[in-house]
């Protein structure tokens, strides 16, 4: 159990590429933090810096109350679950779990106790004598988890652990990992590029872009009040619609009471309604109707600019492709941004 504190962490590769810039984050004991962002945003590098797999160029990292900048991964009291599991293919499941403990010089009965306990918790007790290649994807995932559990570490580090599973199994494992983490109360750092995984699992979310933190907050904070254009576009699916104020002004459709400096208006597909109303009013033609079961996505090409906005409506709406349509959204649902700073206008 431990608090993890990052102070102004940076990573510069030889050759000058800045992978992580000035990241500061205070992770409370027992908290589940999800690092999310597009590929190349530095999230994996940051995780690997915490693990000790990547040298820290500048800044301080402490786990518990120890500064661990110069410690070997094995000395940091962390455990890691890798994207491709990184199970030792020539060792049985039992030995995969036990290997790290043996290297620590832990006594045999204690190793056995921990392995059996973890195996029971993860329902892999029947497979302990098998080699990884004889296991299914989901079972391998559990073994990888088990290898982390037996160490009884101060923190778990997850590097996109579910990305190699099929969609159905991914949802199931997501739930299991989260339950396990809550039960054990172990501080966790979880990297993913999947924003849905991020929203559902995190106590707090950290959105990274270009090696910098865009925003830190609970899933709801990030969803309802994105602080930057990037976060607004990244969190939520389908993505938030961004409408240029110049377009609205030209058509005389600019909503009146917006903070000064607003030149970009964000509106989530869920907040747009079919039909006229107060606040933002748009008109266009239906480009495509996409039924998705409980809901439908309507793609509307706006008059004048041809920009396509997405609308999410429950059920199957009564619209036809090529038909003309009016859309509206209440003022309270609009997110005002300044395109030059890329930030929300207060």
């Amino acid at each position: 159990m431990a608090r993890i504190v990052m102070e102004a962490l940076s990573k510069v590769y030889p050759g000058g590429v800045q992978a992580v810039s000035d990241v500061s984050l205070d992770i409370a004991d027992g908290e589940m933090i999800v690092l999310v962002g597009p590929s190349g945003c530095g999230k994996s590098t940051l995780l690997r810096m915490v693990a000790g797999l990547e040298r820290i160029s500048s800044g301080t990292l402490s786990i518990g109350d120890r500064v661990v900048n110069d410690l070997e991964p094995a000395q940091r009291d962390i455990a890691m679950v890798f994207q491709n599991y990184a199970l030792y293919p020539h060792m049985t499941v039992y030995n995969n779990l036990a290997y790290g403990l043996r290297n620590q010089g832990i006594a045999r009965p204690e190793i056995d106790r921990r392995v059996q306990e973890a195996a029971g918790m993860l329902q892999i007790a029947d497979y302990l004598d098998r080699k990884p290649r004889a296991l299914s994807g989901g079972q391998r995932q559990r073994v990888a988890m088990g290898r982390a559990l037996v160490r009884e570490p101060a923190a778990f580090l997850f590097d996109e652990p579910l990305s190699n599973l099929d969609a159905k199994l991914r949802v199931q494992m997501r739930v299991e990992i989260r339950q396990l983490q809550k039960r054990l109360g172990t501080t966790s750092l979880y990297v993913t590029h999947d924003q849905l995984e991020a929203l559902t699992m995190a106590d707090r979310l950290v959105v990274l872009n270009g090696g910098r933190i865009e925003q830190v907050g609970t899933p709801m904070e990030l969803y309802h009040r994105p602080e930057t254009v990037f976060v607004a576009g990244f969190i939520g699916s389908p993505a938030m619609n961004m409408i240029d104020m110049a377009y609205l002004r030209d058509r005389g459709a600019a909503p009146g009471t917006l903070p000064t400096g607003t030149d970009l208006l964000g509106v989530r597909p869920d907040d747009l309604r079919l039909g006229d109303g107060d606040g933002l009013v748009l008109s266009g033609t239906v480009a495509l109707l996409e039924p998705a079961g409980a809901e439908s996505h309507v793609y509307v090409a706006l008059d004048g600019s041809g920009q396509v906005v997405t609308v999410r409506v429950p059920g199957l709406p009564d619209v036809t492709e090529g038909g003309v349509l009016t859309l509206s959204a209440p003022l309270s649902a609009l997110h005002p941004f300044n395109s030059a700073s890329g930030r929300r206008v207060q």
Binding site: R48, A51, G52, L53, E72, P73, A74, Q75, I78, A79, M80, F82, A86, L87, Y88, Y99, G100, N103, Q104, R147
Partner: peptide
Amino acid sequence: EAARVDGA
């Protein structure tokens, strides 16, 4: 990396 984390 896994081996390093495992203290090898």
